[in-house]
Design a protein around this nucleic acid. Sequence first.
DNA 1: TAGATTGTTAATCGATTAACAATC
DNA 2: TAGATTGTTAATCGATTAACAATC
Lengths: 239, 239
Amino acid sequence: MCYLDFIMQKGYILMQCCDTGNNKMQKCLNKSTILRLARYLRVLKKLKPLGFVKVFSNNLGDAIGVTPSVVRKDFSMISIPGNKRGGYNIDNLITELGAVLGKNQSHDVVLAGCGRIGSALMEYKEFAKDGIRLLAGFDLDPARAGAKSIPVYDIKDMPEFIRSHNITVGIIAVPDTAAAQVLEKMTGAGIQGVLNFAPVELKGSGGCLILNVNLGLEIENLFYQVKLGDKQADLSDLN
Amino acid sequence: MCYLDFIMQKGYILMQCCDTGNNKMQKCLNKSTILRLARYLRVLKKLKPLGFVKVFSNNLGDAIGVTPSVVRKDFSMISIPGNKRGGYNIDNLITELGAVLGKNQSHDVVLAGCGRIGSALMEYKEFAKDGIRLLAGFDLDPARAGAKSIPVYDIKDMPEFIRSHNITVGIIAVPDTAAAQVLEKMTGAGIQGVLNFAPVELKGSGGCLILNVNLGLEIENLFYQVKLGDKQADLSDLN
DNA sequence: TAGATTGTTAATCGATTAACAATC
DNA sequence: TAGATTGTTAATCGATTAACAATC
């Protein structure tokens, strides 16, 4: 049964499907699946130079900490075939995962706010490894950023830059009081996805996706879990 | 029916419960619930100075972007009572949420790696607002961090510092090649929770909790979702 | 062939959502 | 009282897990 039949039978509407550019109809993958696919790809890229040609679902599962079932399900979802006894071909996996994740496309981003966090991001070399290019930083005072490997412009020029470079994803690293206003500027210029480091929960309007990275909340959560772990250990000691 | 009866009936084992220190038995809350509770608390702390005394579940739901049902369920889980027509008392919510989140306890953390990201974190003022204190930074070369508002010591002194200050949570912001080694040092000294900025997936051993903040993967995911949104919009245009 | 691994289906699990009785 | 909101239960939804037939 082909995928289209499957979705018809299940009563899905067309909106829930998408053409990923490799001409395979596939189900929209949720965030955790996508993150797993990106992790597989990272592992595979390290495995290939070591001379490996094939992997089994349990190898990859071990590597990123999931069960083999999840790995097989994930690959099945995006129609990557394996061999019943020979596992999966690494070259093929890298190609196919790359296609799904859009590795052939340019991933250009802009940054608003060139303070401490913004500056750290501008010098963050790991972005390049994932195919992400930070094209420019913007700030109220472009001079204060100092010498950077990336140009810093006045924030009033940001919308024009976004439009002329067809940029769809931006990073916000301004103080919380300025965040909402900067977001508006970005979405107004065509930005559709934002990684927000300002300690306010920005809300996406008009189809703009917001990913709030809230360091304080994350650390708070860590403390809670740690405290919980202690309590559980205490209780188990009672046995 | 009291909670203990409930868990007996459901067949839960005692390990799944915990005493949060306020002498109420309560179910272990999952990560997303905890993050929501922390968000409620932030909103409430902004609401109180404005003179508000009560809130309704739909107010709080709107504020953090969830349905009123979720809010009521969350408060019900941690036994915070409301009034059938008068909503929830803000002071009481702040007290109770603070107790669950451990706001009365000190949340001291140490940082390994005082490069660009580490330095940005040392000067990150928002931690204080969430009751988080970054006590010290550690680096192979303490001098390179320059003048900071927080002391920077040689990384070889980190374990001793962690032990003497009874610190349970640490932040890793070293290069990926050093991350695993630093993690070992931390867990060896008693660290039980780690926020990891190094672009490697660290795995928790011996009950140490790891929270990997992987900026590259997150941005990649954002690009995927944005691309997906476009495709969906295109499809809906066909109607 | 025998053994091992995939691919897919069904079962399980948990979280979210909806509904509504209780009640202020 | 009438109206509105809580608190809790049941329904829904989706993701993870387990199982196993297919097959290399």
